[in-house]
Design a protein around this nucleic acid. Structure first.
Lengths: 318, 318
DNA sequence: CTGTTAGCGCATTCAA
DNA sequence: TTGAATGCGCTAACAG
């Protein structure tokens, strides 16, 4: 920048003003631009941030594994909000290790991120209190914080499943099958199954299958409706029903949880759990803190949306 | 840091040394640590980088859409290499807009990333020459650079498909079906179809289906082998064959291109296109430049690996 | 509108 | 080993 100033025959301040788009005489600005071109000068944002009151204009996202498609969609949602403010996003994986989680978080803090979006791995995050007290934003995602008082966004998997079943019940169904992974597949799966069971209270016994619908349909009292609790399962159920000629007979509500590149979006009544929306919500919570909001810790529950597309509105055929 | 020094009764240098793990008298170090604790001091990495010879210890990844599962896996591979060097990764989407691509890249450059990993959107990247000349690393991914001379990693989609077909031919198959999206689905799909056609030269006519295998099998001269060109299609073909009792009759080689969370890995002979490996390769190329390698531009082609798992080794049954 | 000056938070010379 | 001084690249006061 010194060189640019020298070559253009102006002071450092003038170069700074040109680079930052502040009002400068057109002739001088042209000289500066020419010098910038010739010298291959590139403005150093970090150095500016040091002096400027504003921060680093960056935030950090940490989760167990950044290759998880759910996280990728979440990250995208965060980016949409962050980009409006020209803030950059750092991302890192914890690999499920609390030690590594702490290490990753502290490195980001060392880089002076203005906020952290954390899909937690460890149990204890009290070590973040100091930074939160110093003004760094912090939002927990998917799991509420236990050892620190901070904002949080969660997806209501259970409520989503319940909404699906209630939708089917409202259309007169009584024998409703659950197709999808069991509780061993993780928190979300377990919650969805629990939601199913809650909403089935007072009806026929549960009709649960790990993944295959066909045996259920072949039974004595086949279900008149199906709830599929995961994206890939939803696609498979759709195809199974189509193949058996039951796609206009057996009602079907699915869950749309991860983006499937290259796959056909299922034309099925869906409970949309949009990771992207969750990311946007989390980012908005975070930036409100960065902007100085100082109220109590908030918990935003992101309610899945039921999108009727025909298959969930079929009436029962006995 | 000044406050810490004052409270500990030492100089700034001593605090700096303690924070950076340089040799310091144990008693003084203890005092410093205590002051750090009490004051809630956090070291500012960016400020240090300004003075230190070393750079920002960060790199940028840019692609069309960071929610793409392929990119997510790529990102993970990059992270594995980057983390060994304690470098952070920034990521951003171009949304398919060359203007936005340039904007995003220049912002990252303004943040003084030491290198850039680019899955290109636009055609012209000559504007990056200045920064490359100034020492910033640059690696193109998936598409070779046209208007700038720089390193590049690509996946050999065409060669992968060819390897699959040749594997089947080596096992005696002559009627081999292609199931998967057409060229309109993008570069990778088009290349795979082209590889199929190349490897089918001299055999029966192509047997191509957009997605459904069943009609082909019901034809007069059904194929004795199937190549499925995409992960989700592979899963569907597997299920179709199983359902028809042909899973031990019709040979099958699939492509495994994106990670499918929560889905069963297909027990099928596979051509693995590992985005993660591509990410590692790209990162290694990049860091060699960051470390000062100054040879000609290199092109690394990441060859997919054929993993025999039984289904691709079935012999033809007429 | 422009130039001068004084730092931002830190690492790194040099002496001691 | 430690401390004092200098400057990394830049912005923000201020005075012109």
């Amino acid at each position: 920048m010194k060189d640019v100033a020298a070559m253009a025959g102006v002071s450092l301040s003038t170069v700074s003003r040109v680079v930052n788009g502040q009002p400068v005489d057109a002739a001088l600005a042209a000289k500066v631009h020419r010098a910038v071109e010739l010298l291959g000068y590139r403005h150093n944002y970090a150095a500016g941030a040091l002096r400027r009151s504003g921060g680093s204009a960056s935030i950090g996202l940490v989760c167990e594994d950044i290759s998880d498609p759910f996280f990728a969609a979440f990250h995208r949602g965060v980016e949409q909000i962050a980009r409006e403010r020209s803030v950059a996003t750092l991302a890192a994986s914890t690999d499920g290790s609390p030690d590594r989680e702490r290490d990753v978080l502290e490195r980001m803090l060392g880089r002076r991120v203005e906020g952290l979006l954390l899909i937690p791995t460890g149990k204890d995050h009290s070590y973040l209190r100091r930074d939160v007290a110093n003004g760094t934003g912090l939002v927990f995602v998917n799991r509420p914080p236990k050892t620190i008082d901070t904002d949080c966004v969660v997806t209501d998997h259970r409520g989503g499943a319940r909404a699906a079943i209630e939708h089917l019940r409202a259309h007169g169904h009584r024998r409703i099958a659950y197709v999808g992974p069991g509780p061993e597949a993780g928190f979300a799966a377990a919650e969805r199954l629990a939601g199913y069971r809650e909403a089935m209270a007072g009806l026929d016994e549960d009709i649960v299958s790990r993944g295959d619908l066909q045996p259920l349909l072949a039974g004595e009292e086949p279900p008149t409706a199906v709830f599929s609790s995961q994206n890939l399962v939803t696609i498979e159920v759709m195809r199974t029903l189509f193949r058996l000629g039951l796609d206009r007979v057996v009602a079907h509500v699915g869950v749309d949880d991860i983006p499937l590149r290259g796959a056909i979006e299922p034309p099925v009544t869906i409970v949309a759990h949009e990771a992207l929306m969750l990311g946007r919500a989390a980012a908005e919570l975070l930036f409100s803190r960065v902007d100085g909001f100082d109220g109590r810790a908030r918990e935003v529950v992101s309610a899945p949306t039921l999108i009727p597309r025909g298959t969930g509105e079929l009436l029962p055929v006995s």
